[in-house]
Design a protein around this nucleic acid. Structure first.
Lengths: 220, 220
DNA sequence: CAGTGTGAAGTTGTTCACAGCA
DNA sequence: TGCTGTGAACAACTTCACACTG
């Protein structure tokens, strides 16, 4: 909705957020095709694979600036580069995570984010039993160490997986210590200054949709 | 979008999917308030906590059928019951997961779903090194065992965390074996019959939004 | 034809405006 | 005044229609 694309000195164009959310999926598929030695891919092909509307895909891809050959499609190598560039997947961001509970541990152990340019390099907690341990090779420190390490390592992303009661506090600390983006998994609305990038993810949302459909279609 | 609410013999009303996605977050907060001995909650209060539009919350809650007292709000106990009922969080669904890689393991280890009525009771894979082990107490079986166990245990939800190339195959097997809902994490569009409930979750989507904003606002 | 690319129409969801109530 | 509840206005996203190309 307020994302912008500024493909090397071109003027910025607003990219709708639903589009930004679909782009990584396209990228994933296109990379698979690339490994299978394909060199071109068309929007209708992607649409069939993902069961989306073909014009939707066309429109989404148009934001990358890559122009397709009619009747052939888009050159895969060009598309991959444009998508990775636009999504920032080739820029190697490092992240700190606060709250090493079940969800935090799960995120750390799921290393799939690494392919997308984000690496969780350390976790923080205030639970003495967790401090000093490591989760899948990622060390868990006391929250107090956060400041010092952030400044030294130039960390830009903070992930919050604490209970909701602690989340605003942690967010405030992160902001004070120079974090630029916060990925919040706690079910509250964090108050952050204008210049901080905030992304909320509510884990239960997808499950809710399923359970709800399951119950209501089962009743019919 | 096609979710329906049929609160005990009332006629079904269409509930927008974005609403269904917000409801579990409301539930979460309301339960916290309940533990803090509150008995009433108003829509504007929830809106402040989540930084949403107050009328949005009002409209969302109206779908539960609970009617609020003016100037006071909604009775918490009533709301909790209505939400849990509508979302199906009190119905104890059991799920099987196929693909015990990083993502699958992370989902299993994140036990937060249990509070929402879904428990992952077994995992399946075809990798000999994984079969026979267990992840956080959840056993990993060979995919061949899936059929037998599904039928015996009346499992309704199948979770797919395999590579995309295997996903359609696994989905077909699940459907043949009586699964009613599929939660797909593979980045492809599965083809499933009308009566099967399908929910796609693309993990990278949220990360993409963050990285993208981070890069483009940093450039400014 | 089977693609791209784009403006216009249609649909869906959100926000506003206001009536009613305690 | 502060809340619920709802119809109407608005904004965002998706789908359609069609001109254009090899």
């Amino acid at each position: 909705m307020e994302t912008t694309l500024s493909s090397s000195a071109k003027q910025s164009v607003a990219v709708p957020e639903p589009t930004v959310r679909r782009l990584p999926t396209y990228l994933n598929i296109i990379k698979n095709l690339q490994q299978a030695e394909h060199t071109y891919v068309s929007a209708p092909t992607l649409a069939r694979i993902l069961r989306l509307d073909p014009t939707q895909v066309t429109k989404d891809l148009s934001y990358t600036g890559v122009i397709g050959k009619t009747r052939v499609g888009y050159q895969i190598s060009e598309l991959v580069e444009a998508l990775e560039d636009f999504l920032g997947f080739n820029r190697k961001h490092e992240a700190f995570l606060v709250g090493a509970g079940y969800l935090g541990s799960a995120l750390i152990q799921y290393q799939g984010f690494r392919e997308s340019g984000m690496r969780i390099v350390a976790a923080f907690d205030i639970d003495k039993n967790k401090i000093g341990t490591d989760i899948a090779g990622v060390p868990v420190f006391h929250l107090e160490k956060f400041r010092d390490l952030t400044e030294r390592l130039h960390i830009t992303i903070g992930i919050i997986t604490t209970p909701p009661s602690a989340a605003q506090n942690v967010a405030d600390l992160m902001i004070g210590w120079g974090i630029k983006a916060i990925w919040n998994f706690a079910p509250i609305g964090l108050k952050v200054p204008e210049h901080i990038i905030l992304q909320d993810t509510h884990i239960y949302a997808n499950l809710a949709v399923i359970l709800n459909k399951l119950d209501h279609t089962a009743l019919k």
